[in-house]
Write a protein that binds this DNA or RNA. Structure first.
Lengths: 172, 172
DNA sequence: CACCCTATGTGATTTTATAACACTTAACCG
DNA sequence: CGGTTAAGTGTTATAAAATCACATAGGGTG
């Protein structure tokens, strides 16, 4: 996976969200939201955790644990794998980030606080990831689960394909 | 992941399919189906590939690549990781097996030949896996994809929870 | 038979993730 | 406050998962 430089502009067409948005704004509000949520739920939004969430928000794409670890090192934090994995565990456990199983990588959550079962669109060309919603338990899978008596607790939904930007480039 | 002994009986309540079925029969027919499919499509159903599919069918649960590798070694095949990974790549590419991203493990396909987008129910207590169908592209995710212009090529749908057998044990 | 393409065998390495333990700091309780 | 406890962090080491690179073998075709 090639590492590309961070977004250089605020208001741009993100190559990851597949949609226009004000990126600096969404970083700030997401951090603020996380901070407020932690304050309310007696969770400790420590410097390492905050920093990792910042990285995920800023890069706005799926980051491997070791990429995050490199950034932590540069930021003066501990640089051994558990440091990154523990922060990521905290962030995913409380819904501030998600793991993309398909990529063994992590992204910041687009809808923090909301009660959601996330779904992801992963571009196989640029590795961009866009978060969406899905309710697989309401469809065929849910029926099958009820039929055999399986209790669904969590779902992983990841669609792989081509994002609009890469599709556009391919036609040029 | 603990390795448990293979199924000792043919007709039993599988702890993995979450349903009754004749296991020796399903192994034989699945191998025959794969063989026929390969013959028809000019694919080479080589000894290693056949053996790996046999392992997956016989164990009837998610197996890690290294568990498969151990079995290959015992069966007299090469015992380096690429041997297992290449066979698994072939099997998954042609729909004879699937990778469970959540577990970094592989299962034999329950519906070989059929054109399907698989979905899985994974028991977090016994690691049992049951294959089902899902059509995420027809639900909320499909709508989101169309809205932004994302072309879905493949989907990963995995539900984690408690299988009926483990739920039953828990109440006792 | 000579050729080529595919598959296999093997050693080495990379990438991803966890275990174990020491140390520090924040929270709690009197 | 002061002392205790639990949670968080830092670090070493190791496990688990996956790939790279290259040599060898086998099977089909001209």
């Amino acid at each position: 996976m090639t590492t590309k430089p961070p977004a250089e502009q605020a208001k741009k067409r993100s190559d990851l969200g597949f949609q226009d948005h004000d990126h600096t704004y969404c970083v700030q509000t997401a951090i603020a939201t996380a901070e407020a949520y932690c304050a309310e739920h007696a969770l400790r939004f420590t410097p390492v955790r905050r920093k990792v969430l910042e990285f995920l928000l800023r890069e706005h794409k799926a980051l491997g644990a070791y990429a995050i670890l490199d950034m932590l090192r540069e930021a003066g934090f501990g640089s051994q794998p558990p440091v990154a994995y523990r922060a990521l565990e905290f962030l995913t456990a409380h819904g501030f980030a998600h793991k993309i199983e398909r990529l063994n990588a992590f992204v910041a959550c687009n809808h923090p606080g909301e009660n959601h079962s996330p779904a992801f669109m992963i571009c196989r060309l640029c590795d961009g990831v866009s978060e969406s919603h899905a309710f697989p338990a309401k469809g065929a899978l849910g029926e099958a689960a009820r039929a055999v008596g399986f209790q669904i607790e969590k779902t992983v939904v990841e669609a792989e394909g081509i994002c609009p930007d890469c599709a556009e480039q391919a036609t040029q």
